[in-house]
Design a protein around this nucleic acid. Structure first.
Lengths: 240, 240, 240, 240
DNA sequence: CATGAATGAGCTTTCATTCAT
DNA sequence: CATGAATGAAAGCTCATTCAT
């Protein structure tokens, strides 16, 4: 309980794998050790993502994570300092991956309508493929952003999608198909909202609307709805 | 010793106040007692709504609820059987109140556009005024609908808003301003999504978009965005 | 982890035993329950005194205390809020008992020399009879007074012995046997120091002085040494 | 792989630096290595003294020591075998330094009164300058001498001060200023007690006496009190 | 109808220590 | 001689829940 210096919980920092060889004098044994360490760390992060995604932060137990990752509780503290800091990294990683995927979207600015369609479909598909993304954010928002606030890295991650949308909007305006008064950020939130909410809230929605929103047909139908709605929100003229 | 049957797990159902007199031979003392009981029950429910809204189900502690309601932990078990069942009632109540409010919306079917606008504004305002509604649903969905599934009452509560939207859509179609192929249910989810997501996810959104989404101007701006988007999604001719 | 209100850990306050009967309408059953509660609380306090005395605060384990008192860990938190707060009460109780004993010292102010002798002997005997007193203070000082600082009660407890010493000194001065420039507080610390140090440090002293300081003869010898030294420190004329 | 015998539990004994050259055929590289090792060892010992002094044995964490000394936990085990054995060395070193300082006291046996005064002042000043000495002993006594008992070196260290006091007492008796029936050992304990207790227990004393015992004036005052008291305990006649 | 005491399982975290290079 | 990874036991504390009047 009593600490000397206020002790910043500084977990182990591990050299990025691959870099170790360039360090020169270090023995091969050392490199091997480091690689194993890196593996352990990654295993914990992966397991934590699954556990937190399944149960949220509070219900995601440390022991579940260590069991799933094949390590000991102790190692979580060794590498991440605390459950909370581990969650921060999980969140950061989730966002990073989303950003990376967004950065890979291939669009043709010459075709603004189909470009926008592509983006909407991409986001929708990403949510479908990465349900953990939704649960993690859900949990974090339930906790009033407690963890993300403390993340230095998080504020540096700005969604590439917003920038892309800016380009698409500009191109559309130039080509006379999109209105000029639509902000990219608003459009981004719109796209996210229409997809995210449908999936994140489907448990309560299903009960209160007395409908199964996850049926195959339903998902496709909703995809077309949001595509339609998003397009209509920026188009100057409706297609006939 | 309890005056009635040797309960096992069945929480107390209390006659609505005022109804008790009709039960026949019961004394006035009994009626008074029942009224006090009713008050305690209500106090717990109110406190639980606040506590669960603030922290979600898991982080909402039984003790916090009993403290806030001025009773004892024990009473929660007496009236509701368990923390989970209490949460179910909280959820049901929240939805009921939402439904009651929706039922009170005053719209003029002769003016479909302004009727729809009214509905969008109403939902948005309701979310703003009842942040607990959002947090409760958030928590419940994080728990995969664990509680709502067990609620008998929940499935009976179907949103009046959907019915109202149906009327509005029909009227709009008849008057030649709305398209005919829009489902009321989809429209409802759309409206909900655009408002709910913006508010429920604002903690993470603010960090990742590097913007304060809760500034006064921002909220009003978003209100106009969603109104615009929703209208455009049903209009036959886009506004110029 | 997350708390609603900052939650002051307010442990259960129990009505003083005996008072309960006077409360009027309470049932006998209630009184009996309270008495049992009081017993549990006392048992914990007694056990804690022993455990902390034996091992100090840090090494005194919560489980040892609950085991020794025949309760569960949980009850310690129920009644005292935390290990630290329990320690505070242990300390307060120890000092209180010391004060009570001091208040019972029977001295004859007409005989200042024998009065002072009585006080010195009392303190020495008290230390011998209450080794826990020494260990508890030792531990608390090792922790830099961490707990006692937070004790509201502690600052109100002022040693009766100092007041008594003042009377004795005054009487001795009037009778022309004691010097006039000796402060009662200094004298008190002197008496305490000579007895306390010998006992509290006897483990290291024995090793470094190569002597067994706790042999029967040794203890009596030291008693006479400190009596002699204390008297000499206030006498106007040294004994021959 | 360690260069020497397959150690089990026996920590490294390192040749004093400079002495290594006499060992014969060892290379210069080896000598340099040994010097580095010596430095690490010393750094750990110094850090341990500070950490244990601040928090006592139990609360002094191995990690705090390795951090403060700029090494790794592992090294503590390499050089000292265990936390307990490290503490033993810390204790021994503390006593050794005290003894060395005592051995350096410069007194004039021809002036017994001022010689004794010098000793009292020395001890008091030593405690003031080396607060860690007090805390370490405090902790060790709280642990019932657990470590010091196992120290072979400790029992060989006998305080030079006792021998010096013997000389001073003898001289004083011869010169007709001191009484003949005072034992040097008792006098030593007296001197130690009056200084040590005041400092070691000042946290609790301050609270219970409602006074700040560490104010500048207070410390000087107490110095004069103990000098006075110690002298009076051996003088044949009071100075006028 | 209400109360306060009691319960036991479980949670996060800490710590001294050892393994494997 | 040094390092970083790993270990497992245990500690303090919390929580939902039930007992006994």
């Amino acid at each position: 309980m009593p600490t000397d210096t206020p002790r910043k919980k500084s977990p182990r920092k591990i050299a990025a794998p691959g870099r170790s060889g360039a360090e020169g004098g270090r023995s091969k044994a050392h490199a091997a050790t480091q690689q194993r360490a890196h593996k352990t760390r990654e295993a914990i992060l992966r397991a934590a993502t699954r556990v937190f995604a399944r149960n949220g932060f509070t219900d995601g137990k440390v022991e579940s994570i260590s069991r799933l990752s094949g390590t000991h509780d102790r190692m979580i503290y060794y590498y991440f300092g605390s459950k909370a800091q581990l969650f921060v990294e999980v969140l950061e990683t989730a966002y990073e991956k989303m950003n990376e995927a967004e950065a890979r979207i291939d669009i043709d600015l010459e075709e603004p309508v189909s470009a926008l369609t592509t983006i909407v479909h991409f986001v929708w598909q990403y949510y479908l493929d990465h349900p953990e993304f939704i649960t993690l954010l859900n949990s974090e928002n339930l906790l009033k952003g407690r963890h993300i606030k403390k993340s230095a890295r998080a504020s540096e991650l700005s969604s590439p999608a917003v920038a892309i949308l800016e380009d698409v909007l500009r191109s559309g305006v130039e080509k006379g198909v999109f209105r000029a008064d639509k902000r990219a950020r608003d459009l981004y939130i719109e796209i996210a909202a229409l997809g995210y909410f449908y999936l994140s809230n489907h448990y309560t929605l299903s009960v209160f609307l007395n409908a199964d929103l996850r049926g195959k047909g339903e998902l496709d139908h909703w995809k077309s709805v949001i595509t339609d709605t998003v397009l209509r929100s920026v188009l100057l003229k409706l297609p006939t």
